[in-house]
Design a protein around this nucleic acid. Structure first.
Lengths: 149, 149
DNA sequence: CTTGACCTTCCCACGGTGGGAAGGTGGAGA
DNA sequence: TCTCCACCTTCCCACCGTGGGAAGGTCAAG
């Protein structure tokens, strides 16, 4: 990215550029999100045609795909910014990447444990509820604090 | 809730009312969120003192605690609105509550599975990364699409 | 030249929570 | 009574990630 506003769109295309929806299709990141990532500085500003259309090269699409995959692994935007920095830095230590990934894995574990705790409690309640036409319901009783307050 | 603006705060207190921070402390819902729930209609508008301070009875705190517990189980606001409706309706069928809870449990399961999928992929990558001072790193390679694109 | 599909920027929404500013009140102590 | 501080009020702004949609410009094909 970061080219000057040189091209007509047709010229840009023949020079191997994509427009934003092509970049979106090729990367799996929506056009909306591509603009958003640019705005927030996650990716550098895209080049533009004389008419102001954003244009993308293969390398740019590659970056977007990287982001997409990181999102699929649940990394936050901040973490992805860190990963992109490490990716660009050819002298990085793999230990730094591993540390970031391990941290994220711990976050995932915490979140999973939290959800499993909810699930366990809920399962118990659902199990206790006869679930028929009568109004008495242990689920509501529990939420209302019957057993605690 | 839904009392007219009758009281001075001191009178209200002696009539068994709480102010918002007391209600917050007793229910585990922050004052900020109590106002938010009122604004969004999840709970009815609180009574007020002549000076405009919100006042709460035990029953109101009870409702807030119900909401708090439902949040702790991961129910969304919309689901909680449903649960509150069922709670208030003394002629509800417990089957309706059970259905709502079972649906939420399925949502939790889906979310857990999603996170576990991420965790598994990530674990594999972290395991493959030697994590030393050298720059080559299977985690970044994977994100960059080495094995797929 | 028209038409339709794209592009641009801009604002708004969701969930749920928090921070903080600006101004009014309550109650305790001097 | 005055002062002081903690609390209350409303209001707007932020986070994260994503989508919807309006208003206006551009491009390519017919």
């Amino acid at each position: 990215m970061a080219q000057a506003k040189y091209f007509e769109l047709s010229d840009a295309r023949s020079e191997g550029f994509f427009n934003i929806s092509e970049a979106a299709g090729a990367s799996g990141v929506s056009a909306k999100m591509i603009r958003h990532y640019e705005e927030t500085g996650l990716v550098p500003k895209a080049g533009r045609t004389v008419a102001g259309y954003r244009i993308y090269r293969d390398a740019d699409v590659h970056v977007l795909r990287f982001i997409r995959r990181a999102r699929d692994l649940g990394f936050t935007m901040k973490e992805i910014a860190g990963l992109l920095g490490l990716w660009k830095d050819k002298r990085r230590a793999s230990a730094d990447v591993k540390k970031l990934a391990a941290k994220h894995m711990a976050d995932l574990d915490a979140r999973i444990a939290e959800l499993q705790g909810m699930r366990r409690s809920l399962e118990h309640l659902v199990h206790c509820c006869h679930g028929d036409g009568r109004p008495d319901c242990p689920i509501l009783d529990d939420l209302a604090g019957a057993g605690r307050a």
